[in-house]
Amino acid sequence: MSVLTERINQIIKPENLVYAKTPLLNDDAMHYCPGCSHGVVHRLIAEVIEEMGIQEQTIGVSPVGCAVFAYNYIDIDWAEAAHGRAPAVATGIKRVMPEKYVFSYQGDGDLAAIGTAETLHAINRGENIVMIFINNAIYGMTGGQMAPTTLIGQITATTPFGRNADLNGYPLKITELIAQLPGAAYVTRQSVQTPAAVRKAKKAIRKAFEIQAKKIGTAFVEVVSTCSSGWKLTPVASNKWMEDNMFPQYPLGDLKDSGRADADLYRIKG
């Protein structure tokens, strides 16, 4: 054994452990493509649930899309929702079990196209749930078609010459819309491409779950994400493309952090 190997082996001991996968993530290899942001966000949710000690009280709602199998990875109870309906499913669960923690996990097609009504109305009702929104500006699962959040000029399987506003309309900034809703308690946009960004995103997810306990409205966390396969770039190049193109359109940071609106602002006079 070389001196170096010996030294490494002296470090690799339980007492020196500084990071290990949370037991809430099971040992199955995730089905996601190499470099996919879903894996990071799954881990952050699992870590937050573990650190808050709420595994027994948490029910997740997975979407239709790449994250449909989210239920395979995090060791909690799950309901798998129809395409776009996760906020309604989460509403149903939360309403009959208000003491539980309920979160939905959706992509851009699910949350901002087919499920727009369910998304906006769940938040407008101020449902005390957490909504995680993965925005990678493309439909990953079905093979890289245009999403509501696809950028102008972005090439996808259904915009092979780039998204054209005349033909396809504009990127939907649904998180900005959501921030306007009186039922939204906390609306933030995060990313997970660097260690610093990941640590910030985790804080935001933790805060979202803590807000749920306070019952002051919907906590909404968008994670601007990559789709290497859909974008046809390497994972590293995808991060660069995201920083250069997605961030100007979807700037990071908190959009709202004030709790649900005061209902008296909307009350009838007489």
């Binding site: 990071y19 949370t22 996601y32 894996g39 881990r43």
Partner: peptide, 8 residues
């Protein structure tokens, strides 16, 4: 993304 690294 695959939580496959343990750090000491």
């Amino acid at each position: 993304p695959d939580s496959c690294i343990t750090v000491y």
